[in-house]
Design a protein around this nucleic acid. Structure first.
Lengths: 144, 144
DNA sequence: TGAAAACAGTTACAAATGTAACTAATATCA
DNA sequence: TGATATTAGTTACATTTGTAACTGTTTTCA
């Protein structure tokens, strides 16, 4: 007998969607920004000069999704792209001034959201939880 | 500074997608079944006679998604639909024999998958983890 | 060297998903 | 009662996402 409401994969999926949508609401309408675009901005803000492939690896996103997000961000003037010598296949990505200002507007709200969530747990409980989450992620990687 | 790899919403999203895709692999190609269809089968198997709206509530799915999944499952002969007296708007849903056999084939694999994951945690750690997950879900609901 | 494989990124097409408007049935309450 | 609002489910349309095939570039190694 499988009770969906008690089933870990289902519970994780509901929680994850709820949180992602909650954060997304803070930037989607305000900046006309999708979740994948936001992730690209987050990665490029953290690692200026990354290539699209590196973004895909770091964000666990499909390279096609990254390509699309990058091209929308370029069109909107939120990213800049420069040559990557000597490999001319890849291009290095940087936030434009506008990209920076979006990044700087969203990051504090995102971190505050995370903090609010984690404050539902006692410090010790929180430490254990994040630790267990890491162990589960490793188990899932082994298993999939 | 936001480090995506350490950011809880991101970690949950990656883990959840990885697990969902891992389980989905066990039924997608074998039964030509999508994730939403599988969820409908799980709910109807657990609560025979539910209506589509109740499925949507229990599975945290959109009613449009449920409607589409139900109609595919009906076409494939995996669900049956009977009148709901006296309210003729809603219809009661049941697994057909074929639906039952799909349900019974997937449930053990899904539960085994969950068990394998949770065995990465000690029993006490596991109990704490699931408890914290519940607290987080409540916090997210309050916050969103 | 140079043919073949691997890689970065894009494009094109198919499938999944979200939003809004809709039909038909039931509930509300002046 | 009967006009209005609400509900169950569907349909239509737009957007997002996944998969496969593609271009151009670099690497590999016989």
């Amino acid at each position: 007998m499988l009770d969906l409401e008690d089933f870990l994969p289902y519970r994780l999926s509901v929680l994850s969607n709820r949180i992602s949508n909650g954060i997304a609401r803070t930037y989607q309408s305000r900046f006309d920004l999708g979740v994948t675009e936001w992730r690209v901005i987050a990665i490029v803000g953290r690692y200026p000069g990354v290539t699209a492939t590196e973004v895909a690896d770091r964000a666990a996103m499909d390279k096609v999704a990254v390509s699309r997000a990058v091209s929308r961000l370029l069109d909107a003037g939120r990213l800049e792209r420069r040559e990557n010598h000597p490999d001319r296949r890849a291009k290095r990505l940087y936030l434009s001034e506008e990209g920076e200002s979006i990044h700087d507007a969203i990051v504090p709200a995102a971190l505050a959201f995370e903090r609010d969530l984690l404050e539902a747990l006692e410090p010790e409980e929180r430490r254990r939880f994040l630790d267990s989450l890491e162990r589960l992620a490793e188990a899932a990687e082994r298993h999939c």
